[in-house]
Amino acid sequence: MRREQAGLTETVRDPDLFEAFYRRHVDRVTRFLARRVADPHAVADLVAEVFLAVLDSAHTYRPGRGSEIGWLYGVARNTHLAQLRRSARELHAAGRLAGRRLLDVDDIARLEERIDAESPARRALAAMAGLPEHDRALLELVAVDGLTPAEAAAALGIRQGTARVRLHRARRSIQQVPGVSPIMEGTK
């Protein structure tokens, strides 16, 4: 038993013996992984990972517990499962980083309704894009976000009189834009 175990350990140390081991088993390992993974690039990567893992773990092979191919399938299975766990972690991390989750049909319908309901505000924001920054900021707070002119003045750190003058000037500037005037009327 010690001698057979030493055989696989010696095999991974000798390039010629390892090449023979690889050639003897690569087709079976490839078939094993191809039954579990549909992407040919992933299969090729996993086959390579399996034989790299063999180099690191040959000392764990115990001939008394089964054949080389059985042990090799165990290495392939563990390599495949590790890849699945890595993929799941990456997907979860990407989802957390992106702040996204999968949307169901009801979520999409609610979002479409919200998007439709906000189209006048989007038109107002687009019309405001040409205004000077200080006028645009005030008008956005009042017309789009629904603050009173006094609240907007406080938010921007300006006097209420200054806010009223800027608001009047901004309204006059965009009053000719179609679809925007009705939204601006409520901003007194």
Rank of each mutant, 00 (worst) to 15 (best):
E4R: 10
V54C: 02
A42I: 09
P132E: 15
L52C: 13
A93I: 11
A127K: 04
L125R: 13
R171G: 12
H25G: 03
W71Q: 08
G7S: 07
A53N: 10
L102M: 03
G70N: 03
R85V: 12
L72T: 11
H25K: 06
I115P: 00
D104H: 10
R101G: 12
V177D: 02
G99P: 03
L97A: 15
L139N: 08
V105P: 00
A44I: 05
E140R: 15
G179E: 10
A58E: 09
T30K: 01
D104Y: 08
A154T: 15
S87L: 11
V144H: 01
N78K: 12
L102H: 06
A154Q: 13
D104F: 09
D104A: 09
A88Q: 06
Y73S: 05
Q175Y: 09
H25I: 10
G130R: 05
L156F: 03
G66N: 07
L8Y: 07
V37G: 02
R36P: 03
R171L: 11
P178C: 07
R169F: 06
E112N: 06
S119K: 10
H59I: 05
T148M: 01
V47K: 01
D107P: 00
L147K: 14
S173W: 04
T9Y: 00
K188W: 11
M184F: 07
V50P: 02
R159N: 08
I115V: 08
Q5Y: 00
A109Q: 12
L52E: 14
R2D: 13
N78C: 06
H168F: 12
L125H: 01
T187M: 02
M184G: 01
W71D: 05
A48R: 10
G179Y: 12
R23Q: 11
R122Q: 05
Y22H: 14
H168Q: 14
Q160P: 03
V75N: 02
F21P: 11
F21C: 07
R3V: 12
A88H: 09
H59P: 03
R100Y: 11
E90W: 04
R65Q: 12
M128W: 04
R13N: 08
Y61W: 15
A20C: 01
G70E: 10
R62Q: 14
M1L: 08
Y73P: 04
V29F: 02
H25D: 08
L156A: 07
E4W: 07
G66Q: 09
A127R: 02
R35A: 11
L156V: 15
L52V: 15
G161I: 01
